[in-house]
Amino acid sequence: MSLDTLLLNPWLWLGLFILLAYTIEAITGFGSIVIALSLGALLLPIPAMLPVLVPLNICMSGYLAWRNRQHIHWPTLLKLILPLMLIGMLLGYGLRPWLSGQLLKALFGVLVLWFAGRELLRMFRGHISPPHPSWLSRSLTLGAGLTHGLFASGGPLLVYALAGTRLDKSQLRATLISVWFTLNSSMTVLFLLDGSLLPNLPRIASYLPLLVIGVVLGEILHHRLNEQRFRQVVYSLLVVTGVLLLGKAVL
């Protein structure tokens, strides 16, 4: 395979995006799948990437969930988040075959734009979200499950759904990590059943070292970077990526 052919291989670029995404997650604590999927969607179909990115995420979320298990707020996890998100995830998974690749990219572009734009505004204004009414939190949590089933990216809506929660930072982080481990494990089982997991196992294995390298790099850079400024750069990158995704979907 020539160098030009290699450089034109979108799966090679996805590997670079995975390395970048897990480095950023180790620095900031958010968004490995959102970042890798949003950049990868510029080159590859979303349904083709999910059976690779979702199992990869289990490795990190499983390790972090175990390490932070003492901080998990079990009533919130078991009574509020998981029932609604599992229902929403199954709905989103069931909808994916009925949606065209272009429509999926457009919807994901809107989600990325909303998430990154909202975070940038919140950072510049120093805004703290007030608590939501119970019905709105539950509706948003169900919607987060739906977006997780569609894009394995329920984080933006779920974090918004839990705005103003009484959980402290450690409890919220540990509870959210447990959500991703549970949902992504469930999605991996669905990928196994629908036949899309096994053909991707060699690719998943080849990307695993990138995950480890990204985490190590992120841990090193975490202590050397201004996290606030770095988050602004990442959210700005996501805004641009969301615009590009919408542009590709429309054109």
Rank of each mutant, 00 (worst) to 15 (best):
P51K: 12
L120W: 10
R96L: 15
A48F: 04
P75A: 06
L80K: 14
L103S: 15
L44V: 07
H73L: 10
L120R: 06
G101S: 10
L86W: 09
V110P: 02
M60W: 13
G88A: 05
L91R: 07
I58K: 00
P133L: 05
S61P: 06
Q102C: 13
G154P: 04
R125Q: 14
F124Q: 15
Q70H: 13
L120C: 09
P133V: 05
G101F: 03
S134Q: 15
V110N: 07
H71T: 04
V54S: 00
I81H: 05
F115Q: 02
G117S: 15
S134K: 14
M60E: 13
L104N: 10
H148F: 08
V54Y: 01
R96K: 13
A48Q: 09
Q102G: 14
G149P: 10
L42C: 07
L121W: 12
W74G: 15
R69Q: 11
I128Y: 10
L146E: 06
L56Y: 02
K79S: 15
I46T: 05
L140N: 02
L82F: 01
L44K: 05
L56W: 01
A116M: 09
C59H: 09
R138K: 15
I81Y: 01
Y63T: 10
P97N: 12
L42T: 01
G143N: 08
V52T: 06
T141H: 02
S61N: 13
M49Y: 07
P97F: 12
A152L: 02
H127W: 15
L142E: 10
P130Q: 14
G145K: 01
L146T: 05
H71I: 02
L120F: 06
L136W: 14
P131I: 14
P133F: 05
L82M: 03
A144P: 02
L111Y: 01
S137T: 11
Y93V: 15
G94Q: 11
